[in-house]
Amino acid sequence: MDIGKVSELKEFIESCKSNPSLLHTPSLQFFKSYLLSLGARIPPQPKTEPVVDDDDIIESDIEFDNTDDVVQPDNDPPHKMGDPSAQVTDDQRDAAQLSKSKAIDAISQGNFDQALDLLTQAILLNPHSSILYATRASVFIKLKKPNAAIRDSDTALKINPDSAKGYKIRGLSRAMLGLWTEALTDLHVASKIDYDEEIAMALKKVEPNAHKIEEHRKKYERLRKQKEQKRAQPKKQPQNQAQDKDALSALKDGQVIGVHSVGELETKLSAASKTSRLLVLYFTATWCGPCRYISPLYTSLAEKYQRVVFLKVDIDEAVDVAARWNVSSVPTFFFVKNGKEVDSVVGADKNTLERKIAQHSGPL
């Protein structure tokens, strides 16, 4: 084994020694089951009030279906296993086959303990037979000893990686332990190698729970990413805050601001953009009758919509500003958001003017 992996394993074991409650983590259920299968004693989980953040993954939140067949992990001493390096004679193979036949008869009669003894005898005679381990695993399933069944299934699959029975029995065993995702993987492989009705029935029970776990993990993965993105967002620097403060000071809430040059207009446009405010640019003239009619309303709108920037430009005084905006008649109103013109009104139509201000500025 890689030295680095051994070192990581040692660190993990030390962590478990110092904090045994780690073994009750749902994602470590497989390791806990393995320890129990070896006869280990796991300290009970301490009864403490859980402290749960919004994005903590809590698999116990899931309401699983078809849990009637789930059992507590068995921790009986392991049954005898054959010597994989042993040389097997033809006589031993024949004797193993005879013991297996007797075990099958015992299974059909419900004598599972006798069947286990006969299959163990057969395994010791011929430890190279994948089917012997898989058959004994199937007996452990009937006795509701999933960990013992998993040990035999693992051995069967080491001997024959294409053993459909090995995958099927291990999948059924994992389902009995509530390891839905792992069970689904094994049963899918078994169905591809040698599909049967028992696998089909097991899949109907396992798939819904495995899919619930997957959706649960996806949900909390999204929450985790959202939190990471939120943390990664740069905090507004003091310099930016000062710039925003300067921009606000250039705007006069509730008032109409006169603009007399292109430079003044650019300052106001920049300030409105930095503060994400709607800006209304009103072009007028002293000789314009409709302008005299609409101006008082424009002033009252500034008092009403105090988060909107209201500018006023006399086209005879600020000729360069009027030329830049191609003003051909007055009164004319331009609506600007984030530095871009989004709408306009030509003429002294007070209803349309207020409607467009309300439309582009959002709530008061």
Rank of each mutant, 00 (worst) to 15 (best):
A272C: 10
S295V: 07
A318R: 00
K304V: 09
S270R: 13
T286W: 02
T284C: 12
A318E: 04
A271T: 07
L297E: 13
I315K: 00
P290Y: 01
K268V: 10
R292V: 13
Y293S: 14
P296W: 06
K304S: 10
S273P: 10
V319C: 05
K268R: 13
V280H: 03
L278D: 06
R277M: 15
Y298N: 07
L301K: 05
T286P: 11
T275W: 09
C291H: 07
L278R: 06
T286H: 06
V308M: 11
K304D: 11
I315G: 01
L281D: 03
P290T: 06
C291L: 10
K304C: 08
S270E: 15
Y305E: 08
A285F: 02
E266T: 10
R277P: 09
Y282D: 15
C288G: 07
L279I: 05
L311F: 04
T286L: 08
R292D: 11
W287S: 06
L301S: 04
S295M: 12
F310Y: 05
L311T: 08
V280I: 14
V319W: 00
T299K: 12
R292G: 06
T286D: 15
V280F: 01
K312C: 05
Q306M: 11
E317S: 03
V308R: 08
K274H: 11
T284S: 15
P296E: 10
T299Y: 09
V308I: 09
V308P: 09
S295I: 04
R307V: 06
V280W: 03
F283P: 08
S273H: 12
D314V: 01
Q306D: 14
Y305G: 07
T275P: 11
A318S: 09
W287P: 05
I294T: 02
C288A: 12
A285G: 08
A285R: 01
F310E: 04
A272H: 04
L311P: 05
L281E: 06
W287L: 05
V280K: 01
R307C: 07
E266K: 13
V308N: 09
L297N: 11
K268W: 00
Y305V: 03
Y282H: 14
A318K: 01
Y282K: 14
L279G: 03
P296T: 08
L269R: 12
L278H: 08
C291Y: 04
S295H: 05
